[in-house]
């Protein structure tokens, strides 16, 4: 009988742990965040690569850009449409997407991704304010 009380207690603790996501998020609907495009980004119309590619692979592009500048000193990127861009996070990417908090951070914090861009780069939108 004493054993059974112990077993039931253990079972209840286990079920409570399994159900953790259900009670932790109780009553908090969490739809995916809306990204805000700045006026400049909207005006540009297209990013360096198509949106679908950027959504999935922007980290590869940024890393390839970093390696090309830091290791090979190549600062020119030509996209499939033949358009050239200056390879620079601060001067190219953040020129349009100057709203890090509403563009980068929203998805990253929603998905709990922590890119190490900002270990080195400055968030200039914050600096200006």
């Amino acid at each position: 009988m004493k054993d059974r009380t112990l077993i039931i207690t253990g079972l209840i603790i286990f079920i409570a742990l399994v159900a953790f996501p259900f009670w932790y998020n109780m009553g908090k609907a969490s739809p995916q965040p809306d990204l805000v495009l700045t006026a400049k980004a909207k005006a540009a119309g297209a990013c360096v690569m198509p949106t679908a590619y950027m959504r999935a692979n922007h980290m590869h592009l940024l890393d390839a850009w970093r390696n090309s500048v830091v290791r090979d000193a190549k600062r020119v990127f030509v996209n499939p449409q033949g358009k050239t861009f200056n390879i620079s996070l601060t001067k190219t990417c953040l020129d349009c997407h100057s709203n890090k908090a509403e563009f980068c951070d929203r998805c990253h914090s929603y998905a709990s991704a922590e890119p190490y861009c900002w270990d080195c780069h400055l968030d200039q939108s914050k600096e200006n304010k």
């Binding site: 109780m26 609907a29 965040p33």
Partner: peptide, 23 residues
Amino acid sequence: LKVDMTSTKELTMGLVTFHPTIP
């Protein structure tokens, strides 16, 4: 194959908050 992370999380969050959606 790079699944769309934010949509996926919207689905999983929908499940645990009892507002299921298929984004």
